[in-house]
Amino acid sequence: MTAGAIYALIALGYTLVYGVLRLINFAHSEIFMIGIFASLFAIDGLGIDVTDSPKTGLTLALTLGAVMVVAMLTSGFLAVAIERIAYRPLRRRGAPRLAALITAIGVSLFLQELFAARYGREFLGFPRVLEKRKLFTFQGADVRSDKVLVIVAAVVLALALERFVARSRLGRGIRATAQDAETAALMGVNIDRVVMLTFFLGGVLAGAAGTLYGVFFESARYDIGFLPGIKAFTAAVLGGIGNIRGALLGGILLGLLEKWGATVLGGEWTDVFAFTVLVVVLMFRPTGLLGESLGRSRA
């Protein structure tokens, strides 16, 4: 469920970009990875040390808030930069989607290896920020404070995004562009700006996911984004890619399915199980559970 909430946040980025550009932003997993690193550095920057005890109350809220903002902005601007450098030239040329996907893979590898070269190929540990306290037991499962926080934060952010897209003027621009970009331009929508905004929003959520992942799993590595990225994409497809609520539903559903799969088959088979779910869903319901379309996801 915790993993599912994080998948959901990352999935929103895939879904937004796919909804508007019909592009699988393969580099999104690295935007998430860099969100984790940004969180780690922000925690360092706040002078928090491995020897410090976990934060509580207001200190926790402030620390977490500050770290998350740093990560969100870092990832958000990184996503925009990637769009400008790697995708926009192709978009201008009207290049086929295959070309864009290959570019995305290139960006993804480049960023991974950049971080590998700079910060090494070993895991970096996080100081403990979030107390892992048992709150109560629900149907035999421990409900821990950190888990609750991750899930609540993810759901709140996802709902905020949905509200933004459904209600705001720019959100309307995003939906219009997703449904018919050329007509949207005729309505006065600046397509380049909408695309930029879409990448930014996706990046911001991936950054938030990075912070949550960081304080929950407490480690960072150059290739840490790969698996959650693929899983999040699976979640987006599961819920219906391009559909905001679908991403939320897909993420949480995938988290639960994985947990169940791990119990039945054993933990080492979790990933195989997740991929199998993806294949099966695509075979029987290629547009996902809630269907594709950014336009129809109204509040």
Binding site: I85, A86, P89, L90, A95, A99, A100, I102, T103, I105, G106, V107, S108, L109, F110, L111, Q112, E113, L114, A116, A117, R118
Partner: peptide, 23 residues
């Protein structure tokens, strides 16, 4: 970074050249 041999930069260079190629 503090990488010793070029092989460690191989994948990075592939990534960059994939992007450059497509662009």
């Amino acid at each position: 970074g503090e990488v010793r041999t070029i092989t460690e930069y191989r994948v990075l260079l592939f990534g960059a050249s994939l992007v450059a190629m497509m662009v």
